[in-house]
Amino acid sequence: MSMELPMLSALLNTATPALPDAWLVRMYLSLGWAVVLAAMGLGLLARLSFKARCALVGVLFVWALVPGPLSPTYWLGLAFQAPSLASVLLGGWLVWRGLFSRAGAAKPKVPAPVWWWLMLPAVLLGYALLLDTLALLPWQLVSWGFSGALLLALMAWTLMPWLLGGHQDVAEVPLWIAPGALLLFAATRLPSGNLWDALMDPLLWLLLQGVLLGHLRRGYRNRLAYRT
């Protein structure tokens, strides 16, 4: 009993944040945006030849690593700071898929458990974090991002789709991205030391909303077509 309470107290504590080292943040900023930019470039120009796609990824990657105002990282960092670990892992998977997978230019599929266990909660979470930023919630959600308990709870949550017998088809968005981001956060504290920043940045949140709305619209149209 005497051991359990201090452990629980330590897990719930939001006043023991561990922040990443400055050199690691600096390195991650460039590498993170390099991966995200490469994924975006491949997404826009997916029909290029393999060599052209490799060259595109290489150019975007190197461009993002250039120091100073000539680099997109300089301006993206000014506006958006660093991308979340989840964005970088997703970007990395998209780059790998765009270059080496047979799925190639096909749109990635989202498996059913991901909709309910990850996408929808993530979209709702983004709204909660936005309201929290504007102090419109009675509690301080952003502070919870410094607690160990939240990290464990989210790790368990994001593993659920996989535990419930997920796929894996190479055409599908992999289930390891969210738990992978949390594992990397536990090891590195990137990008800021706050768990929310590792799990989902506002740009990823906007992307997820677009994907979710597209899914809902397709579902609605399919239902209409079935009725007629």
């Binding site: 006043a15 023991t16 561990a18 160990g148 593993l159 535990l163 536990a186």
Partner: peptide, 26 residues
């Protein structure tokens, strides 16, 4: 098997996280 791996991951995350956290301040 999956459950064991998931529990292992949770323990790994907990250890990695705890080792890096500073002691709480009074």
């Amino acid at each position: 098997m999956r459950l064991a791996l998931a529990v292992g991951l949770l323990v790994a995350v907990w250890l990695l996280d705890s080792l890096q956290r500073p002691a709480p301040l009074p």
